[in-house]
Amino acid sequence: MAHTLIDIPFEQRHQCWFCGEPSELTFGFPHQYFLVFDCSHPPLSVPSCRECTAFARKAKQHSIWAVANNVKHFLAQTYQKDLAIGINWTKEELANSEFESGNFVGFQKSAWMMYEIAKQRLNYQGWVLSLEGVELDVDYIGTEFTFDGVTYPSVDLAIEHFIETYDLSAENFKKALAIVGIDKFGKAVRFCRLLIGRTPEQQKLALRYFAEDEKLG
């Protein structure tokens, strides 16, 4: 199958379309790893880095935009620990942590940089796709969710990320979100962190009070 390389803006000629990192390869879609018979756009290829190319080949989707969403999902899972740095620390806290020896020194020096790189790759939005000057119609509605400066491919992935980062009860967190709604995602996180270490009875009672307070506004 012949793929046409998308039009590439001059200032982005060396960027991966998926994450913005330096591109080394191109990813053609549809491809031999997943046959698509109802693709809404012509066969095309986009510049990509090696990691995103590998992720894209695993995506079983029917358009390049859906593939891109899957790639973000893989990136978020792969770099979960790096993204968690920005949740558990601030740049100032790391800089002033005063660890001058031991294993923590390397972490102190590189951690914030790794967080920033992971965040930038996840937040990156590829340029509008066009072939030989003709812009392609997007037929995919994304399910992205942004919280605390990080754009997750979906709210479900954001939920998984915070459950694992803070070791929250998945059941309690989802119940808290159902009470306050995803617009108050941070409030649900803060509440569920208070439940850590509490007995099941205490957690159940706290959830009841939490729901009553939310009704009262």
Rank of each mutant, 00 (worst) to 15 (best):
N69Q: 15
D167W: 04
T143D: 13
Q108R: 13
W127D: 14
V71C: 05
T90C: 10
A84N: 03
N69A: 15
Y166M: 01
A68P: 10
E116T: 14
V134I: 11
E100D: 09
T143L: 00
F74P: 05
K72C: 12
I117W: 09
A76I: 14
N70V: 12
S97G: 06
Y152L: 03
A118L: 04
D137G: 03
T78M: 03
F74C: 10
L131M: 11
W65E: 14
W89D: 10
L83M: 02
E93A: 15
S101P: 02
N123E: 08
N96W: 08
P43N: 01
Y79N: 01
G126I: 12
G133R: 10
R57V: 02
I163F: 05
I64A: 09
I64C: 07
Y115E: 12
V128R: 15
L136T: 10
K109T: 13
Y152T: 04
L44M: 01
A56S: 06
G102V: 06
E51S: 10
G133S: 11
K119G: 06
N70T: 13
R50D: 04
C52F: 03
L129H: 13
A59T: 01
I159H: 01
G149W: 03
E135C: 12
L129C: 13
A56I: 00
H73K: 14
I159E: 02
W112A: 11
R57G: 13
R50G: 15
N123T: 07
R121P: 11
T146G: 03
A118Q: 06
D82R: 07
L131Q: 12
E116S: 14
P43A: 00
L131W: 13
N103Q: 11
C49Y: 02
Y166C: 04
L94C: 11
